[in-house]
């Protein structure tokens, strides 16, 4: 019974991990760039939420998601327009990787200097402790809400990409950056929107993860690795795959923690590495 509960909680955590991965997958799918700074931007959004809820203690921290999402979208737009677009068409595929890695180092250390290296978390009061009793299983309300929210967001994103003109333009730009220009579309502008969207999704993941577990300015690397593993396990580009990948990682992590309380992300990393060994095909390319 305790194992069933662990598996269910792992699956619920997986919804959150799926959210971490989806933003990374979106940017990769559209512009073939792995944004190494994705994790740092998530932590930054969590710091913003903490800051805002300190300023307005009477407002529920979860409502802070709204301004944080808007802010993250704007930051993503500017980040893409000012920095990433300058190397995105570079003939050297390593340039965006190195550049975003450089940005991640800058962000991490700026956060250390501004917010300090202390451990933080986002308190949502009663909600974080509330739980449901179903058939003898103890299921947390907050993780359940997170999974539902993740599933809704995945559906919404899918709908936008499949059935709107914006989605059509994004997919066309991912296919042929030059040819969309013949339809009067500026690919750089599309990228700006996509990065904004990616960081907005990352912000949701980042803030919800900050509710679940504490964080420091150094947590970005961890979050990036999880996001990356989710995307690769999910088979790259498939959104539902990312959710499944997240669930697999979440389960691996919680099972690991049951075996060894100090394991941290070790078992999630191991699952990823073993998958690399046994299922390397399909790891390399695909599209949104």
């Amino acid at each position: 019974m305790i194992w069933v509960e662990t598996l269910i909680n792992g699956a619920l955590l997986g919804g959150l991990y799926g959210l971490l991965g989806i933003g990374l997958a979106l940017v990769f799918g559209v512009m073939r760039v792995v944004n190494i700074a994705h994790g740092e931007f998530m932590v930054l959004s969590a710091f913003c939420a903490v800051l805002l809820s300190n300023l307005f203690p009477q407002v529920s921290p979860l409502l802070m998601l709204i301004p944080v999402i808007a802010l993250s979208f704007a930051v993503g737009w500017l980040y893409q327009a000012a920095i990433v677009n300058r190397v995105v068409t570079s003939p050297d595929p390593l340039s965006p990787l190195l550049l975003t890695f450089g940005v991640s180092v800058i962000l991490r250390n700026v956060m250390v200097e501004i917010f300090g290296a202390d451990v933080r978390s986002l308190q949502v009061g009663e909600l974080s402790r509330a739980s449901l009793e179903i058939a003898g299983l103890n299921i947390g309300i907050m993780p359940l809400l997170t999974l539902v929210l993740a599933a809704l967001l995945f559906m919404a994103l899918q709908l936008v990409l499949r059935h709107t003109e914006f989605g059509r333009i994004v997919r066309a730009t991912a296919d042929r950056r030059d040819i969309v220009r013949l339809s009067g579309v500026k690919p750089d502008r599309v990228y700006n929107y996509v990065m904004g969207l990616s960081l907005a999704l990352g912000a949701i993941g980042g803030v919800l993860l900050a509710v679940r577990s504490s964080f420091t300015p150094f947590s970005g690397a961890e979050r990036l690795l999880i996001a990356f593993e989710v995307v690769v396990l999910g088979g790259l580009g498939s959104f539902w795959g990312a959710l499944l990948g997240g669930i697999a990682l979440g389960m691996a992590q919680l099972i690991g923690l049951k075996i060894d309380p100090n394991a941290g992300l070790l078992y999630a990393h191991l699952l990823f590495f073993i998958m690399l060994l046994i299922r390397p095909s399909g790891l390399v390319s695909s599209r949104v």
């Binding site: 003109e165 066309a172 969309v180």
Partner: peptide, 12 residues
Amino acid sequence: FDSLTIEENLLM
């Protein structure tokens, strides 16, 4: 555009 249907290609 390979990941768009024919109709979507036309709409582009």
